[in-house]
Design a protein around this nucleic acid. Structure first.
Lengths: 230, 230
DNA sequence: ACCTGAACACCGTTCAAGT
DNA sequence: ACCTGAACACCGTTCAAGT
């Protein structure tokens, strides 16, 4: 009675989109992506599975809304935000930390690149790209390049986290991958074999920032001397 | 009898992993990702659905094998391959073209970043990063940054293609997205609204290359004067 | 307007039984 | 060794029926 069966009583308060999203995030964070089913969600909300459809179109919309809720929570320190490069770094790290605490966000971001959460990222990055004085005709390509990098790495971290869901910790998971890579044909995979030795010790956060810095360095030659004219 | 029912006779030749993968690719190319089920695959192969499991572990392994088959087919012109930067550009375009003709590859690449196909990409990129004279301690971050960008953009194109599966062509699909972006709150989404006007006319291939060039430009300051010493 | 929950139309995967 | 195909254990989604 204490912990075995979930509450059997029906809920007293009315259902809402917010409550559904909050419950979905709890399940995703606690039990992982595969645990989020409409049946499990309905059980947690103490309602019928069909009730959810009154508030949310379908599962894809639910995941998009949950992801948007997380990404919307990313904030950049006001002082840091003054300098565009630091602001991009800080926001990118915000995305990184969000994925770190909510691994399913990484998978969802890369799975549906035109959901609203991605627009938040594009806006945050794009605004700073403009502030850096990148010419108007290059802003699209530059902003989407940074965004694509973020989404791409997001997908990778999501998988790393998915592996760790099985109970294995990060270190042994990376060791296992490194071992598999080390067994590859030396003729065709010299680089991957070399990388394999560095994989277990590498720092995700540093890897993430290094990529951002690489892109920012690539922007430098494009910049105007001053901020863009109106 | 002519077109309605699929062939009812059992197959005469033995099943093989290669035949299964080839049939899977045919379905994926012809009817899209959602059409690939073990039942549909078994019907096309004129066998029972359980037979497939004798040759392939599960659906994820099937998709990974199909993706690897496509990525393995990417070739870089020998002359171009001599210059590392051109080789990276050419290989990246090879990935782009592969996704263009097999849209499901984009989704699969970003979905499972440690499948074998991704190692091919990492090896191709990493070898050229070494040849460019990037110091050993930076090779990991640089190579994975380029790879992450490729995987991130791959996911985006995959979605674009997924939208077009519904019969809508690319132009109207992009117009529709642009219209949605244009309706966003001007206060919070000035950049996305600006980008929306450029979205319908933009060239995917150029966008892809621009990102690669941005990363390559970012590499320049890191390079040794000569190729790395042994 | 909002909710219920059985029913529908699927999946991937397994496995006793065949050859 | 290789294949069959019914059966199992799930899904997301719908919808007549309730309040």
């Amino acid at each position: 009675m204490i912990s075995k069966t979930p509450t059997l009583e029906r809920r007293t308060s009315a259902l809402s989109k917010e409550a559904i999203i909050a419950a979905a995030i709890e399940i995703l964070d606690g039990q992982g992506e595969t645990a989020l089913t409409f049946r499990a969600l309905a059980a947690r909300l103490a309602t019928g599975s069909g009730a959810i459809y009154w508030h949310i179109a379908d599962k894809q919309a639910l995941l998009a809304a949950a992801t948007d809720h997380i990404i919307a929570g990313i904030t950049v320190d006001e002082v840091v935000a003054k300098e565009p490069r630091q602001a991009i770094r800080a926001f990118a790290l915000g995305v990184f930390d969000a994925i770190d605490t909510h691994p399913w966000v990484g998978g969802q971001l890369s799975r549906d690149p035109w959901q609203h959460a991605v627009l938040r990222i594009l806006e945050a990055v794009g605004g700073r790209v403009q502030a850096l004085g990148v010419p108007a005709d290059a802003q699209f390509n530059v902003a989407t390049a940074i965004m694509s990098f973020i989404l791409g790495l997001a997908g990778q971290y999501a998988l790393g986290a998915r592996m760790c869901e099985g109970g294995i910790d990060r270190t042994t998971a990376l060791d296992e991958i490194a071992a598999r890579w080390a067994q590859l044909d030396p003729e065709n995979y010299p680089f991957v074999r070399l990388i394999a030795t560095q994989l277990p010790d590498h720092d995700d956060r540093e890897q993430f920032l290094a990529g951002i810095d690489l892109l920012l360095a690539g922007i430098e030659p494009l910049r105007h001397a001053t901020a863009p004219r109106g």
